[in-house]
């Protein structure tokens, strides 16, 4: 039983890490109706920029803080460039065209980031404790082992959700974002500046990518594989719904726990290595009952 609990907790923690990446997808989809395939590349680009700047600025008085500020500034610049060079010329184009454009952005950022900063593995140490914690030792023999960095990631993800929920629900900009997502033209007609809104949402997604990149980067080292973590976020999105911040979190938890439990308890019967595709199977299974995802919006179109 102790082992089951350990796998379950480990899976939930892994799920939170997936959610961190999934949040970036949700933000842009929620605010612009665009599925941003470049989110993984943004995670890599943000983390690479951050870690390499720390190295370059290591002789200054506050390398981490300075690097963080410069990286944030660069993510703002990136958002502006994306809006100006990619999105603006494609206003009112079909969603699939915008999606294809984000594919291009993903390939560009992957290559640009590595050309600029190198493609080696860079160690990122921002002081997150690594020592695992042993919990419930009196309840289960051997206790339940929990990685402290995963716990911190959980707290960070929780905070992000709260901040984003307030941003979307309580602020003027947040409401404008939702209006743009519903209908570009209608939003423009009532005076919502579409270009500005797109810059804001890509900036916020860039900042979420930076947070995800820092958490994942301190865990794995900053390297190209960070961009592949986006693939882990896809089943989370399918399950949680593309428009729901809460769905990204709940979806992450279900996917994380489901894939770990399946790997441990079903894997040995089918040769193992099933967690990758099992996540998609699990998401598709949920879609049978809720095609819009657990927390996705139901769209009813007049025909």
């Amino acid at each position: 039983m102790g082992f089951f609990v350990e796998v379950l907790i480990g899976g939930l923690m892994a799920g939170v890490l997936y959610s961190l990446v999934a949040l970036g997808f949700v933000l842009i989809f929620k605010a612009s109706g665009v599925f941003n395939f470049a989110q993984g590349a943004m995670v890599l680009f943000a983390a690479l920029t951050f870690v390499r700047l720390i190295d370059i600025l290591k002789d200054t008085f506050a390398p981490i803080m300075l690097s963080l500020l410069i990286t944030i500034a660069l993510m703002v610049v990136l958002a502006m460039a994306v809006e100006r060079l990619v999105l603006r010329p494609m206003v009112n184009q079909p969603g699939i065209s915008l999606f294809m454009a984000t594919l291009g952005i993903a390939y560009f950022l992957d290559g640009f980031g590595q050309t600029l900063w190198g493609s080696d593995i860079y160690t990122l140490d921002i002081g997150i404790p690594k020592e695992p914690l042993m919990l419930l030792e009196t309840v289960f023999e051997g206790g339940v082992l929990v990685a402290s960095e995963d716990l911190i990631a959980t707290v960070v993800a929780g905070l992000l959700v709260v901040v984003l929920a307030i941003f979307f629900q309580r602020t003027r900009v947040g409401r404008a974002l939702r209006a743009v997502a519903d209908d570009h033209q209608a939003a423009q007609s009532i005076g919502i500046p579409l270009n500005y809104i797109w810059v804001v949402v890509w900036t916020v997604a860039g900042l979420v990518a930076l947070v995800a990149g820092i958490i994942w980067g301190s865990k794995l080292g900053v390297q190209f594989s960070l961009s592949l973590i986006a693939l882990k976020a896809l089943p989370v999105l399918i399950l949680g719904g593309f428009e729901s911040v809460l769905g990204a979190i709940i979806g992450g938890l279900i996917i994380g726990a489901g894939e770990k439990l399946s790997e441990i308890y079903l894997g040995p019967y089918v040769g193992g290595g099933i967690e990758y595709w099992f996540a998609y199977m699990l998401a598709l299974f949920f879609l049978l009952f809720r095609p819009q995802g657990l927390f996705g919006e139901v769209h009813i179109d007049r025909v």
Binding site: G10, A14, K260, I264, G272, G273, E275
Partner: peptide
């Protein structure tokens, strides 16, 4: 034998095993 799927960034299940 404990497989790890490409590229191997997520191995929690393997190491819990």
């Amino acid at each position: 034998t404990i497989p790890v799927t490409h590229p191997g960034v997520e191995q929690k299940a393997a190491w819990l095993q």
